[in-house]
Amino acid sequence: MKLLTTNFVKCAVKACDSSADSFPLKYEDVQLVQEEQDFNPEFIANMLERLDWAALLKVAADLGNTSLPSHKPDDVDPTLTENEPLLRDLHSLLLETQITEGKMVCGNCQHVYHIKNSIPNFLLPPHLA
């Protein structure tokens, strides 16, 4: 799972839909790999607009990265060369960083979702479905 995805995935339990603690999930015992991907500045700029920056900071901290700027860079035009270094950094962080193993925990119901072979398991036990 790409790091990007952590900025969107939330607890699947219906009772957690209305809870602010069901996103972002908390990441534990995580293994990461860097995997090269084609650089697409338009896509990164497009996704940057909808990123929840506070959630990104939280998850990055779970994974041991505390070097991100505290505010989201805004109005990043992907056609300007001056923005390329920033977009490349984000590309490497969001698309090339993959979580291969680990746990994701809901801050509301404490349900643990396991990631194995890069695939998060979101099947719910009958009592939560």
Binding site: A12, N121, F122
Partner: peptide, 10 residues
């Protein structure tokens, strides 16, 4: 990205 998930559960 691939998720193991039952879409009937949301």
């Amino acid at each position: 990205d691939l998720f193991l998930s039952d879409i009937g559960n949301g």
